[in-house]
């Protein structure tokens, strides 16, 4: 029986055999004859499934294996082992029927023709993906409206700003109404306003077209705002797969207590409560273990002249940063 999920990945491994190569032509020529390989485990035995209409965020530091995974899903890389199925296809076969149903957008690469207005690339893609005329018109009009790019369609791509270009890249990728969309760092290099425009668009697109989207990003903001579900990858392994909210329960062993004192106090005494993040009279922020929050805040109130006290979760960015840097294990406080 076929898997019903849109994307299913089972025991996927992608090891690169990177041969150690001296720089320059000499290295290349020598390596044609003798090669010393080192193995890089870019993706090391991961499993996940994604259902139709989901919007999933991949997060992880550089080299964690995010882009490699997307490339395997797109059929650009041949997996070392494991099973991958996207829309019921094996991506590596690169069947036209499969290619017509998905799109890959890489924030750092462009597919628009540099010397021509974006409209030319759109028309070319219409032919490449064999999109019927009326559908093409309808989709294009809709996308132009959503992204507000009517005025720039006739301007040479090289004269567009990065933000405008990225919008057109998205349109070029979406003209064939892909059911599955892979976005690799779509907001990289964009300013804050443009980042928000892109996020709103992705959200809206996902809702309106019921498309399945995987998004990788460095910016937690992207993920926080768009994705209910996140997959955290580091060193080729999945550390976490589930609701973003659950990341906090799983990894955040600290809460933050912010206290406002009415009189100056002895910092050393305060340090016994937990890790002081900052102290600037009259305000102090302290990291305390989750399980002790109630007990410690009661003790704070009784031991110090407290004017105000607030208990918060650590910000998600900080939690994830700590997951990656491995600080969690050491401090464990």
């Amino acid at each position: 029986m076929k898997d019903m999920s849109v994307i299913s990945v089972r025991h996927l491994k992608k090891y690169y055999r990177v041969h150690e190569k001296e720089p320059g032509l000499k290295g290349s020529i020598r390596s044609l004859f003798t090669r010393k390989y080192t193995q890089v485990k870019a993706v090391d035995n991961i499993d996940f499934t994604i259902e139709e209409g989901e919007l999933v965020g991949f997060i992880g530091p550089n080299g964690a294996g995010k882009t490699t995974t997307l490339k395997v899903l797109s059929g650009l890389l041949y997996p070392t082992s494991g099973e991958v199925s996207v829309l019921g296809f094996n991506p590596w076969d690169r069947k036209a029927q499969f290619q017509k149903q998905f799109a890959l957008v890489m924030g750092q690469k462009n597919q628009l023709w540099w010397d021509l207005p974006p409209m030319e690339t759109f028309i070319l893609n219409k032919e490449i993906y064999e999109v019927p005329e009326d559908q093409f018109k309808k989709t294009l009009d809709k996308l132009i409206e959503l992204l507000d790019v009517k005025d720039i369609l006739k301007i040479q791509v090289r004269k567009l700003s990065l933000g405008q270009r990225m919008k057109c890249e998205l349109i070029a990728a979406l003209l064939h109404n892909p059911k599955v969309l892979f976005l690799d760092e779509p907001t990289i290099g964009l300013d804050v306003v443009m980042q928000k425009v892109m996020r709103d668009f992705v959200k809206q697109y996902n809702r309106q077209f019921k498309s399945t989207i995987i998004l990788t990003s460095h910016y937690m903001g992207d993920v926080k705002e768009l994705c209910e579900r996140v997959i955290i990858i580091d060193k080729g392994k999945i550390l976490f797969d589930g609701k973003l909210q659950n990341v906090i329960d799983r990894f955040a062993r600290n809460k933050i207590i912010t206290v406002v004192f009415s009189r100056d106090i002895d910092q050393r005494k305060l340090a016994e409560f937990g890790n002081i993040r900052e102290y600037q009279f009259p305000r102090a922020k302290i990291n305390v273990p989750r399980k002790d929050v109630a007990k410690l805040s009661a003790k704070l109130l009784s031991d110090f002249p407290v004017a105000d006290l607030v208990i918060e979760e650590a910000p998600i960015e900080a939690i994830i940063r700590e997951v990656f840097t491995g600080k969690m294990k050491q401090t464990n406080a």
Binding site: P23, G24, L25, K26, G27, S28, I29
Partner: peptide
Amino acid sequence: MMYKADFMI
């Protein structure tokens, strides 16, 4: 000189 082979080619 850093890229002697390039130079050679």
